[in-house]
Computed example of a mutant assay.
Amino acid sequence: MRPGGRRVGTTVAALAAAGLGVVASAQGAPFTGPPTLPETLRGTVRVPQDRPAGTANTLRALYPVLAACWTAPADAGDGEITTRFSLRRDGSVIGTPRVTYARPASNTHAARILSDAALRAIRRCTPARITPALGAAIAGRPIALRFIHRPSQRQGA
């Protein structure tokens, strides 16, 4: 007997024991295999930007909180950096953030400068100020945060 009074049928158990790929769950829905990895939460921010006031309670509010600690290196040109990391419920980083994309890829020195700035921003802005509900929703899920740095557009505007 399972919690809630549901009984797993002997047919389901027999199919699972036989190693068949598709079996029915206790609720009658087909079982298609092991669970997949969690979907990556993706966000894009233009940097630098001001630090938002208050606590983030949505994903849209979280990304500027994480990017607010960006400080543009003096010799950094235009570029885009994507970092990948996960947060705990309290907003602290799990493990080490990684750079998964860097442009300009042709200029490795510029890409390294921008990559280092993005990783420093994440370290400085964590633990992020997030609500308990947002913390529960994002805990352990991969986050891909894309930093866009375009100083040349700002000078012309």
Results as ranks from 00 to 15, higher is better:
residue 113 I to A: 15
residue 140 G to N: 08
residue 114 L to A: 11
residue 92 S to F: 09
residue 123 R to V: 01
residue 119 L to T: 03
residue 91 G to R: 07
residue 101 Y to T: 13
residue 102 A to S: 15
residue 113 I to P: 07
residue 131 T to N: 01
residue 122 I to W: 04
residue 100 T to P: 00
residue 134 L to G: 03
residue 142 P to Y: 10
residue 111 A to F: 05
residue 135 G to V: 05
residue 146 R to W: 00
residue 132 P to F: 06
residue 134 L to K: 07
residue 119 L to P: 10
residue 111 A to I: 09
residue 113 I to Q: 15
residue 151 P to N: 09
residue 100 T to F: 05
residue 139 A to L: 04
residue 117 A to G: 05
residue 110 A to V: 02
residue 108 T to N: 04
residue 126 T to Q: 05
residue 143 I to A: 05
residue 113 I to F: 03
residue 125 C to Q: 12
residue 94 I to P: 01
residue 106 S to F: 08
residue 133 A to W: 01
residue 101 Y to Q: 13
residue 139 A to E: 15
residue 104 P to M: 09
residue 151 P to G: 04
residue 114 L to N: 10
residue 127 P to I: 06
residue 112 R to T: 14
residue 124 R to C: 14
residue 109 H to P: 01
residue 106 S to N: 09
residue 101 Y to E: 10
residue 147 F to S: 01
residue 150 R to L: 14
residue 137 A to W: 04
residue 107 N to L: 04
residue 123 R to Y: 04
residue 150 R to M: 11
residue 147 F to W: 03
residue 144 A to V: 04
residue 147 F to R: 02
residue 101 Y to L: 14
residue 105 A to R: 10
residue 95 G to M: 07
residue 120 R to T: 14
residue 107 N to C: 01
residue 94 I to S: 10
residue 112 R to L: 13
residue 144 A to T: 02
residue 117 A to Y: 12
residue 102 A to F: 07
residue 112 R to H: 10
residue 100 T to Q: 00
residue 110 A to N: 13
residue 147 F to N: 02
residue 117 A to C: 09
residue 97 P to C: 08
residue 135 G to W: 05
residue 115 S to Q: 12
residue 126 T to A: 03
residue 147 F to Q: 03
residue 144 A to L: 06
residue 108 T to L: 12
residue 95 G to I: 00
residue 142 P to I: 11
residue 96 T to Y: 06
residue 121 A to H: 05
residue 137 A to E: 13
residue 98 R to S: 10
residue 95 G to H: 11
residue 116 D to Q: 14
residue 92 S to P: 08
residue 151 P to Q: 05
residue 122 I to C: 08
residue 91 G to Y: 11
residue 104 P to K: 04
residue 150 R to E: 13
residue 130 I to R: 01
residue 124 R to L: 07
residue 103 R to Y: 15
residue 127 P to L: 10
residue 100 T to S: 08
residue 147 F to Y: 15
residue 91 G to E: 06
residue 107 N to D: 15
residue 136 A to V: 03
residue 108 T to Q: 12
residue 114 L to W: 09
residue 148 I to E: 13
residue 135 G to A: 05
residue 91 G to C: 09
residue 96 T to I: 14
residue 120 R to D: 15
residue 115 S to K: 03
residue 113 I to C: 09
residue 94 I to M: 13
residue 132 P to R: 07
residue 100 T to K: 08
residue 145 L to V: 02
residue 147 F to A: 04
residue 117 A to T: 06
residue 98 R to W: 00
residue 113 I to K: 15
residue 150 R to H: 08
residue 128 A to T: 04
residue 122 I to P: 01
residue 111 A to M: 09
residue 129 R to E: 13
residue 117 A to W: 10
residue 97 P to Q: 09
residue 133 A to V: 00
residue 107 N to I: 07
residue 129 R to H: 08
residue 98 R to C: 00
residue 101 Y to H: 14
residue 126 T to P: 02
residue 136 A to L: 10
residue 126 T to S: 07
residue 125 C to P: 03
residue 108 T to F: 04
